[in-house]
Design a protein around this nucleic acid. Structure first.
Length: 237
DNA sequence: GCGACAG
DNA sequence: ATCTTGTCGC
């Protein structure tokens, strides 16, 4: 049995510190390896409205590698805590777990926005989600996990560069390679991939490049993004 | 007070 | 993430 997350009040530094210590501990439960057979990949995404408005989470399950729609679902609820760097799961995990429960059939792999083990304490949103669902999850972020020293991959689609932990991440139990910058389109800003759970970094990158052919973002993520946007628009009118 | 590090 | 027009480029 794994330790439950400590209750955390985002405005109370003491409980936040406890939660961070728990994250560091939980990294040991993560399996940043594995080579699952993949017939379906799901993209999960959350969209937010203004104050008081509900957040909308969408999941789209696509066949792999041909990207046919297998299933899609939406759920909406009040947002979790406000966003804070390093604590994204506090904001999005509740909604994403509710979302997963609405799927008819679980996918072989889940893609979510944000980081996996490429996180200051080695336990980003994709890790939280992977352990909670006991599914392979890949973290795909549009921005790097820290500012300075992120290696730039070559300019062509498919070029990659390994990311090491930040020099000041004393508490990070992951590494020496925590993720990879991946160029999914020629001369376009890379995406930042890290393993969340039950899948290796190599396999994660293979799947990202296999699903992001024409656009920067992988197709499952784009599909979920579109669906959540559409649903949010529908709710706001 | 400034700067900042997923979304 | 969201607020938002025009604008650069394929």
């Amino acid at each position: 049995m794994r330790p439950a997350p400590p209750p955390v009040d985002a405005s109370d530094p003491v409980t936040v510190q406890r939660y961070k210590a728990w994250q560091r501990t939980m990294h040991d439960q993560v399996r940043a390896y594995g080579d699952p057979d993949v017939a379906t990949v799901a993209g999960f995404d959350v969209q937010y409205g203004g104050q008081g408005e509900p957040a909308v989470a969408a999941a789209v399950v696509l066949s792999y590698p041909d990207s046919e729609i297998v299933d899609e679902t939406v759920v909406s609820d009040r947002p979790g805590t406000p966003y804070r760097p390093g604590l994204l799961a506090l904001r999005e995990l509740p909604l994403l777990l509710a979302l997963a429960e609405t799927l008819e059939t679980l996918p072989d792999v889940v893609f979510c926005d944000g980081h996996g083990v490429g996180h200051p304490r080695g336990f980003g949103l994709a890790c939280h989600l992977g352990l909670a669902l006991d599914l392979p999850v890949v973290g795909i972020a549009k921005n790097p996990p820290y500012r300075d020293g992120i290696p730039e991959p070559g300019p062509g689609r498919g070029d990659t560069a390994d990311i090491a932990p930040a020099a000041d991440w004393d508490e990070c139990p992951a590494g020496p390679v925590i993720g990879r910058s991946v160029r999914t389109r020629d001369s376009t800003k890379p995406v930042y991939v890290s393993a969340g759970h039950k899948i290796s970094l190599d396999k994660s990158v293979e799947l990202v490049l296999g699903t992001a052919t024409r656009f920067r973002q992988p197709e499952p993520i784009r599909a979920a993004d579109r669906l959540a946007r559409a649903e949010r628009k529908k709710l706001s009118e």
